[in-house]
């Protein structure tokens, strides 16, 4: 049966080839066949492409690395990364003025990508978590921890539960074992590594919750998921918990169940390539700037710190051992 309009449809007989709407076959050349002056067009576009690529010359890519004379700074996407990313001028300008260097801030959306970019030398100075800092140091020989916040030497994670579980705050983590449970990001120190370690020490299989543990991706997502009741329990960074309780954005059904013992967490890590490029005194200059920030400084506010303190690699030995034991460092 002739179906004049259906001929255009690219119906099933063509669907194998193109999911869009392919042209019907047209025998031989005829009106409407798009023919380009092939040689002219191809040569012209090749030349123009070459010109454009050559013309890039000294143009700096909006997504590319910082120029070699500059220090590129980044941070793992942990607490309010969008605030940090969009106020990056604050950090970069302050650092630039103090160190007399060009400073470029590069927001990162993925923990593993931050580690990789530190290894490739695209990020020189990165605000890492405990575990990501160790991963980055193991992959980048010569990297040095520069400073940590006052709160980082004794950091905690908070286990939260849905009030509907009826659990009262206690120290016994075994009560969490039969609950649907979510961590934060997979390589988050406070949202995954240390809580998993303390769960294991309490005799709870950290991978064993009903249906397996979830990975919400962030501390805020953990709060929202426990708040919705989909997950009955979760664990997050104590700072985010304090900030969100203070501003009242936590659902009333989410209650604190337990707090982990203290451990070392976030720190600034400086890569070896930056030291080669910008001078052997760079670690000292960065450290003395961070340590000398006056109380209430904007940069301290952005990082939720009272002050920055010195730190060194041995502070993270425990994290490394635990990371190896839990299979997060290989």
């Amino acid at each position: 049966m002739p179906r004049p309009r259906a001929a255009r449809s690219g119906g099933p007989e063509h669907a194998r080839t193109a999911i869009g709407r392919p042209a019907p076959r047209r025998p031989g050349p005829g009106p409407g066949r798009p023919t380009f002056g092939r040689r002219g067009f191809l040569t012209g576009s090749a030349l123009a492409m070459a010109a454009a690529l050559a013309g890039c010359g000294d143009r700096r890519s909006p997504v590319g690395p910082a120029p070699s004379g500059a220090l590129s700074v980044g941070a793992i996407p942990d607490q309010d990364p969008e605030v940090l990313a969009r106020l990056y001028g604050t950090v970069a300008d302050a650092m630039s003025a103090a160190l007399d260097l060009e400073v470029v801030y590069r927001p990162v959306t993925d923990y593993a990508a931050a580690v990789s970019l530190f290894r490739t030398g695209d990020l020189d100075l990165v605000w890492f978590g405990g575990l990501t800092g160790v991963q980055a140091r193991l992959q980048t020989p010569g990297a040095v921890p520069v400073a940590q916040r006052d709160v980082d030497a004794a950091f905690h994670s908070v286990f939260v539960v849905d009030a509907a579980t009826g659990l009262a705050p206690a120290d016994d983590l075994r009560a969490l074992a039969p609950l649907r449970f979510t961590y934060g990001s997979e390589t988050s120190t406070s949202g995954r590594l240390m809580p998993a370690w303390f769960l294991r020490r309490a005799g709870v299989d950290p991978q064993g919750f009903p249906g397996g543990p979830g990975f919400s991706g962030s501390h805020d997502a953990t709060l929202a998921l426990v708040g919705s009741g989909s997950y009955q329990a979760g664990v997050l960074n104590e700072q985010v918990w304090a900030a969100r309780t203070a501003d009242g954005s936590v659902a009333p059904s989410v209650v604190e169940y337990a707090r982990t013992p203290a451990y070392h967490d976030y720190h600034w890590l400086l890569g070896p390539a930056a030291v080669d490029r910008l001078g052997a005194d760079l670690p000292d200059r960065v450290r003395s700037w961070l340590l000398g920030l006056p109380p209430g400084d904007e940069v301290l506010e952005l990082f939720g710190a009272g002050s920055f303190l010195p730190t060194d690699a041995s502070a993270y030995d425990q994290i490394e051992a635990i990371g190896r034991e839990l299979g997060l460092i290989t």
Binding site: V63, P81, E82, T109
Partner: peptide, 19 residues
């Protein structure tokens, strides 16, 4: 962008992290 290559996805991912 979600994995950090820049663009709209990156801005979306940054805001999504904090919901």
């Amino acid at each position: 962008g979600l994995i950090g290559a820049g663009g709209l996805g990156q801005e979306l991912a940054l805001s999504f992290t904090s919901l």
